[in-house]
Amino acid sequence: MTRLKAGGPAIAKQGILVAFIVFMIAFSLMSDRFLSADNIMSVFRQSAIIGVMAIGVTIVVIGGNLDLSVGSMLSFATVLVVDLHDKIGPELAIPVMVLATLCLGAINGFLIGILRLNSLIVTLGMLSAIQGLVLIYSGGQNVDIVDQRGTWFAIFGRGAVFGIATPIIIFGALALIFHVIMTTMPFGRRVHAVGGNPTASVFSGIPRSRVVFMTYLISALCVAIAAIILGSRVMGSQNNVGQGYELQVLAAVILGGTSLLGGSGSILRTVLGVLMLAFIQNGLILMGQPYYTQWLVTWAVIIVAVWLDVAAKRGRLFSPIA
């Protein structure tokens, strides 16, 4: 948790952190196991896939767009890497899959960044089209890796380094890297500017098309990394494994306080959103609730979180529209 504290004052202002702490205290009072190191580690590990994807989507959203195609892109990437694993070996399967996924990201980026089409509709169309591609590629079959014990590919989803599960390390490292990029590098500044005011960005000499294009490449890259973790953990893949992920990812991003209007948001807060959703799920299960009760809690949490955010900005609790 110390990594989160490093974000310090920037995070402290956010209601999401308060909500997070309240939930953590509530759950730890209700279940002894909740705050155990084992449990926390397992929540971290489980949230890694959503988390890695959420990093990419946060960057897209800060740039003023949406990406709904990440779910079926995850199916695509996972099926591809798992299927190729036995055909050409993991050392080739991974780069081929990453390249193929980046191509999908480039298509998104081209349509939205260069042609300036509406990102919601484009990525909706891509969601459908990529799902179709996966089904065509796999012939509707699920894929799996035959020799699950003997491949070093297992390291990404099942391995550990210094006692910390690899997915956590990957998630943490990516979050840190992209947080640094977004907050301290020129590229991050430009994404914020383009999302905040695309016209003013062009008037400031920022290559708006290229910046948006890059955000979709990053999003695709994150999906590819998530697919490596997922494929390695499961050692196989259903052909629709990523279905619905786009919305869970978006929920985490929104919960992290990133505005869908673009221009503001933070990777670290998205991580907080991801963890919060994961801890809610975990806490409810520890309390003996069925897993789907988390969706009800998520519903309330998302709306209240965004509501308070919106209310703070307009200076009154209720909307002034009659």
Binding site: L247, A251, L260, T298, W299, I302, I303, V306, V310, F318
Partner: peptide, 17 residues
């Protein structure tokens, strides 16, 4: 109506809920 939160977010939450 009352919160002024974008319908996309409200109904995304409702979709899960």
């Amino acid at each position: 109506w009352k919160t002024g939160v974008d319908a996309f977010i409200v109904t995304l939450g409702a979709m899960l809920g």
